[in-house]
Simulated scan of single mutants.
Amino acid sequence: MTQYKPKVKALNPQILNEMQMILQKNQLNTICEAAACPNRAECYARKSATFMILGNVCTRACSFCNVQTGKGESVDLYEPQHLANAIQELSLEYVVITSVDRDDLADGGAGHFNACVKAIKEQNPTVKIELLTPDFKYNEDALDVIVKSGVDKLAHNQETVRRLSKSVRPQSDYERSLKVLKYYASNAKVRVKSSLMVGLGERKEELYTSMQELLDVGVSELTLGQYLQPSPKHHKVEKYFDTNFFEDIKAEAFSMGFTAVASGILVRSSYFAEELGR
């Protein structure tokens, strides 16, 4: 298969400035900026973003991720209201909220997720909310808070196949992520989504196995995208795949039983999240 790097849209300075002004005014972070997402130009043009709560410093150090790692920052108790204000100002109809890992907090930040959902729903009752959560170390009390938060969709990313998981996500656990997704699917009356990257060195049969394992625990929606190395210090890209590969894997995912699939070179877990599964 031809090795090549995908083309990424250039950021429109005016759109970028407008979005950043709203984020700065409300003291908010987005994973779009923190992880240097290649889709920022397209999403910002739609006035869409994935908000990242609980600071922009992660207590874990995944080899694929561009988010800063270190000691968790103090929790901003005003963040839920700031988030609700920004969503209203942007006239958003669908919101994805994720966070850095906060292993330093007793509940992993689950209570703060819940507070954000409540603040948003109180101010913007028609907004649909998707939570893309950490694994909370499979703390069932924390997971219960998430399940009962009143969200419209739950997601947790598996990221890669079992064999590569420990090198890609050294402080996470492949089996634990499956348990989190199963807990969501078994206890929440909403659809559950997960995401996988390709190009990290996985074999095709391993990818299919991971897809089946996600289905087996109750995941119904899947996103698949090409891993892009944020910097030389991050995990190496072992292979670039073309659009035909992503079309084939999408067809296979549907045939396996997933009800909604987004698959493409620049697809990320929250890419056009408002359209997936409609």
Rank of each mutant, 00 (worst) to 15 (best):
F113D: 08
A86S: 14
E79K: 02
I97F: 08
D101H: 12
L92C: 10
L83G: 05
E130I: 08
N124L: 07
I129C: 04
N139E: 05
Y94V: 07
A115W: 12
A110D: 11
D135K: 08
D101K: 00
E122W: 07
D135G: 04
Q88F: 11
A142T: 00
E79D: 13
A86G: 09
A84Q: 02
A115D: 15
K128C: 05
F113E: 05
D141H: 10
L92S: 01
Q81I: 02
E140R: 10
G111I: 08
E79I: 12
C116S: 12
Y138P: 00
T98P: 04
L132M: 14
E93R: 14
Y78F: 15
T133Q: 09
I97L: 07
Y138G: 00
G111Q: 15
E93A: 12
A106E: 15
Y94T: 08
D141L: 06
H112W: 12
Y78C: 15
E79C: 07
R102K: 07
T126R: 13
H112M: 11
L90R: 11
Y94H: 15
F113G: 09
A115M: 14
Q81S: 04
E93G: 15
S91G: 03
I87M: 05
E130L: 05
S99Q: 00
P134Q: 03
N124I: 08
A106R: 13
K121E: 07
G111E: 15
G109D: 09
Y138V: 04
V96R: 07
G108L: 14
T133E: 03
A119N: 05
R102I: 03
A119E: 08
E79G: 06
P134Y: 02
N124Q: 10
E140S: 08
F136Q: 01
P134K: 02
K121T: 04
Y94R: 10
A119C: 03
I87N: 09
G109K: 09
L90Y: 07
E93K: 15
D135L: 05
E89D: 14
N139V: 01
K121P: 00
Y78A: 15
A142C: 01
P125C: 12
G108H: 13
E122M: 10
G109V: 08
E89S: 13
Q81A: 06
Y94I: 09
L77E: 14
Y78K: 15
C116W: 11
H112S: 12
H112L: 11
H112I: 10
L92N: 03
Q81N: 04
Q123F: 09
A110Y: 11
E130M: 09
A106D: 14
V127F: 06
G109F: 11
V95R: 01
E122R: 13
D104W: 11
R102C: 06
N114F: 15
A119Q: 07
E79W: 01
E130F: 08
L105R: 00
I97D: 03
D101I: 04
A142V: 11
E93L: 13
Q123D: 04
P134C: 02
L83S: 06
E89L: 13
A86Q: 03
R102N: 07
T98V: 09
A106W: 10
P80G: 02
K121F: 04
Y78H: 15
L83R: 10
L105G: 01
D135P: 07
R102Q: 10
I97H: 02
L132Q: 12
A142W: 01
H112R: 12
Q81H: 05
